[in-house]
Each structure stands twice: as C-alpha cells, then as structure tokens.
Amino acid sequence: MKKYIYMIFLLFNLAVPLFAQVTVIAHRDVPVEKIKKSQLLDFYIGDIKKWPDGTAVVVFDLKEKKAVKKIFYKYLGKTSSRMKSIWMKNMLAGEGAPPKAMKTEKQMLLEVASTPGAIGFIGQTFVDNSVKVLKTIPLKK
C-alpha cells in the first residue's frame, strides 16, 4: 500500500515541473481578487450561484482524468465522483445543470476568459493575461 503512496508522490514530483502548480482562474471581470477554499467549494457545489456584484457564477470542470483535476478536487476535499453526485442531486432537485466539462486546459482557459462570471482551474503553465488568477493551490506533500 505504502508503495503506491510513494509512487503517487513520485508522480506528483514529476508532474510538478510539467504542470507546475494548479491555479484557480476566473473571468477578468469578477469582482474579487482572491478566493477562499470554502467559497470555492460553495461555488463548485452550487451553494452560491452569484458573485458579490450579482454576476452569475459559471463553474467549469475538466473532462479528462488529469492530475490537475485530481489535485483541485482533492484540495476541495472531494472526489470527482462525489462532486458529480452532488451536481446530480442539484440537477434532480432542479437547481440547474452540472458544470460543463472542458476537454483540455486550453479550452478551459478560453472558456473562462470568454464567459463572464466564469471560474475554473488549470495548470499554472497555461495561465495567461486573459484570465484572473484567484488562487494558487499549494502543493501538499
């Protein structure tokens, strides 16, 4: 078992130079510069649907099973399946559809940059000026 854990760590250590750190990005016009973990979770599980200025929050998900996605959800304390089950419940309760899942981080960047009130997550290497960085998720050992 420990072997696996070590292997995962090794993978992370290798992945870090590839993806660098995971950053939470948002549309440039969002009225916040930083975001707390609890707020981010609230946005993602749909408890808060609007930015402080009233703009609707649009969250994005990654479709591929990528390290970035895993790190992000782990940071929020959930698995991707658990997030999906929550979105499922929201959908069944009529509270809206689940976040759109982007195929790549590039697409995520483009979508977030072009959608007002959007929030998403990508590897730091993909970040450019088109989006606002709200948080850089610290790597935990």
Binding site: K65, S80, S81, K84, S85, W87, M88, M91, A97, P98
Partner: peptide, 11 residues
C-alpha cells in the same frame, strides 16, 4: 471510475 461514468451517463 465506473460510478463517475455512471453519473456522467445519468446527467
């Protein structure tokens, strides 16, 4: 994995 897949299908 399958459960996630099933949830995706469920959506």
């Amino acid at each position: 994995e399958k459960w996630e897949q099933y949830l995706d299908l469920s959506f």
